[in-house]
Simulated scan of single mutants.
Amino acid sequence: MDLFTAPLKLSPEAPIDLHMHTTYSDGRWTADQLIDYLVQEGFALVAVTDHDRVDTINTVRQLAASKGLRVLVGVEMSTTWRNHSAHVLCYGFDPETTLLREVIADVKGRQREQAWEVYETLQRRGYSFPRAAELLAASGGEPRQLRDNAFLLIEHGYAPDWPRALEILREAGQRSIHAELAVTVDAVHRSGGVALIAHPGRKERGFTFYDPTLLDEVRAEVPLDGIEVYHPYHSPETIESYLAYVNKHDLLLSTGSDSHGHVGRMPIKYRAELSRRLLERLGVQVG
């Protein structure tokens, strides 16, 4: 039973949101701002799932608890499977001891090595970054990840915006580095948690659309616990298809806004009843 959520019993109509981000990853509002908004709006239970961050989970949860809001343990892991992108929502593990820390540390190490290699390649190609130490002070004065090099390109006038900066970085050898889906799910399960594919119906560039056929293929190799059925980018038809799929295969389902703090991606009040099985798996009673 989880310290921050036990004992907790929700009514079927209680408003929840199990997928949100803060400035600890790529969100546009701080944890304070997000929690204040959720408290003001009367949410009963939420999960803050910053990308590839487990070190900030209890900080966020303690902040929320001080304001009377319950927050589940959660993280959105960026992974790959057979060269497909696969974002995974993970819940219910102990953030202090989870094996996900090792998975994240390995990925961050490889990303840092590549960021430095790309930085050196840019310099050899004539790009000069005299303000690097100042602009990257929070990172120790040197690039540690893709966004650092992109920031340097933009701030030194080599790129007008993020898309052009990414184009320059790819030309300099930048490639995506993520954890393997199977390794991530195994770490979650060995840490006592569950893993669900996030926004499987998202069709934008850079995302993989997981239709039932592809879900069958990935689940044949990786023991996923479920999928995020309710998401702002899922059409009513897509939601119905996923509902049929989770019912057919006895899977868990989650409900999330994927909010980053701007208009159009604000938190959404989903009924707790929709994610009853997931919540009860995590020790939260519904009804």
Rank of each mutant, 00 (worst) to 15 (best):
K248E: 15
D216H: 09
E240M: 10
P223G: 11
D216N: 14
L224N: 08
K248Y: 11
V229P: 05
N247P: 02
N247S: 07
H249Y: 15
I227Q: 00
L243P: 00
I239R: 13
L224W: 09
P232G: 04
V229Y: 00
K248T: 14
T213E: 14
I239F: 08
I239A: 00
E228W: 01
P223D: 13
A244Y: 06
I227R: 02
P236K: 09
L252V: 11
H231A: 00
T238E: 12
V218A: 13
V246M: 03
P236A: 05
A244S: 09
E240H: 07
T238H: 10
A244K: 12
E217C: 01
K248N: 07
V222N: 04
L214D: 06
V246R: 10
E240A: 15
L243E: 14
A220G: 13
L243C: 11
L224Y: 11
Y245H: 09
E240C: 06
V218Y: 03
D225H: 12
P212D: 08
E221K: 13
D225R: 06
V222Y: 01
V222W: 02
G226Y: 02
S241E: 14
T213V: 10
D225M: 08
D250K: 14
H234D: 01
N247M: 11
R219I: 15
E217V: 07
A220C: 09
R219P: 00
I227K: 04
